[in-house]
Write a protein that binds this DNA or RNA. Structure first.
Lengths: 235, 235
DNA sequence: AAGATTGAACTGGTCGGACCAGATAATGCA
DNA sequence: TGCATTATCTGGTCCGACCAGTTCAATCTT
């Protein structure tokens, strides 16, 4: 077996969560509906009640269901109670494809978050910070041939997350991580649309403006990059 | 027993998660460290291995630890891998008290998110939307005497979340929910500082500006409200 | 002696059965 | 008919066992 292949066999819990997520989002169960008991579902799928219980905890964490102890598990009004974990689940289910409205809202948020970090980093950046960013860019450039689409997207995510890390605004880093899955979907599409060389040059451009402490320039680069992506999507 | 007391006995899992979170954040275990096995910890605390396993899943979900199946559980570099769930945990551990820098970052994000929803709602609001907001405000006003500090904070959170819901930008609602715990901590402090009457009047003011489709006015009201809170914190 | 192989020990993941206690619905008594 | 009791169902917890990768040291081969 190719060593790059992950040996992580998908667990029963992951399968259950995916199945329930799909069924709820597809409308098989509607908000307010009472779901079958953990025992029933476990028997039905031929898995342990422990796994089902654990799976429902995860579904409740993302706001898809509401657990009423000793009473039952109900489909939540997830458009009201859901959180970003739910969005990540939706992205994965829909195969990294999203509606334009959703993409726009997500990118607006990213602009708000990363823009804040970018401005802060321009003010506090050290020589080591610049060297680190350049090293990361070069690293992507070098091994770009060996990386798959998803792994490449992951590298770009990490690069931009590093902006938050280096800025010292740890809360922003937490937010970037929260949007991890969504971001990966974005970068995959971005790289398809604009190509790797263009994206890499953009990283250099970012680094330059940070090095020159060009606060407005760096922010505008991010804003225009996002705007370009959105206008490209419309075509 | 007083009926207002919740009968939800804290579970062993919650205790374990809290204990481990505290130990990791306090530095007893450092990023990269391998933690004792699930069996060891279960025996040590006198609880089931299932509970420990479930607890670690929760800790992994918030990015505090990394689970390497069949190998071990390691403390993650949580300042890099942690997400908002971690921030919620930190808020709860520190008893709804946070550093000013963290508060500022969170409020900047809230301004970005809710501001976006506010502008959108000003454009698309219906008569029913306005009536709903006023009804919610009146409801808080009416039963404010019967509500505890936390329940009151929850009402204010829901009111502001309704801005996102009515705006039709469902992604923004998901983000608001993601910040639920943090927001509750904010509202508790806000109500202590400014008092309930002032906060309620502000809700009316918001509704007015939305009704008159005063986009800039509504946004500025939010921005200045946040700025006032921050300057009040400095004293 | 150095490298490759094997195997035992340990790891997280799963399972099913068991019990608890609260919630709920069905039942029986008045 | 109305209320109190009971039986049943629910999620929450726990145990002990087993599975299947991982790890690393003892072993064997060259």
């Amino acid at each position: 077996m190719n060593p790059s292949e992950k040996a992580t066999r998908t667990t029963n819990k992951a399968l259950f969560v995916k199945k329930m997520t799909r069924e709820i989002l597809s409308g098989k169960w509607r908000p307010g509906d009472k779901l079958p008991s953990e025992r029933e579902l476990a028997a039905e799928m031929g898995i342990g009640k422990t796994v089902v219980h654990s799976g429902f905890e995860q579904l409740a964490a993302m706001g898809l269901v509401t657990i009423r102890p000793k009473s039952g598990i109900f489909v939540a009004d997830y458009m009201k109670s859901g959180n970003i974990e739910l969005l990540n689940a939706i992205v994965q289910l829909s195969g990294n494809e999203l509606g334009r409205e959703v993409v726009k809202a997500i990118l607006d948020l990213r602009l708000a978050i990363e823009g804040m970090a970018l401005r802060a980093l321009c003010l506090c950046r050290t020589e080591e910070d610049i060297a680190r960013l350049r090293a990361m860019t070069d690293d992507i450039r070098k091994c770009s041939r060996d990386l798959g689409e998803v792994e490449l997207a992951e590298r770009f995510f990490i690069w931009h997350r590093e902006i938050c890390v280096l800025s010292g605004k740890s809360v922003l880093t937490l937010f970037m991580n929260t949007m991890h899955d969504v971001s990966i979907a974005f970068w995959i599409n971005y790289l398809r649309l604009f190509g790797l060389p263009f994206a890499l040059d953009l990283l250099d451009e970012f680094t330059d403006r940070i090095e020159f402490r060009d606060e407005e320039g760096a922010y505008n680069l991010l804003a225009s990059g996002i705007a370009d992506y959105l206008s490209r999507l419309e075509k």
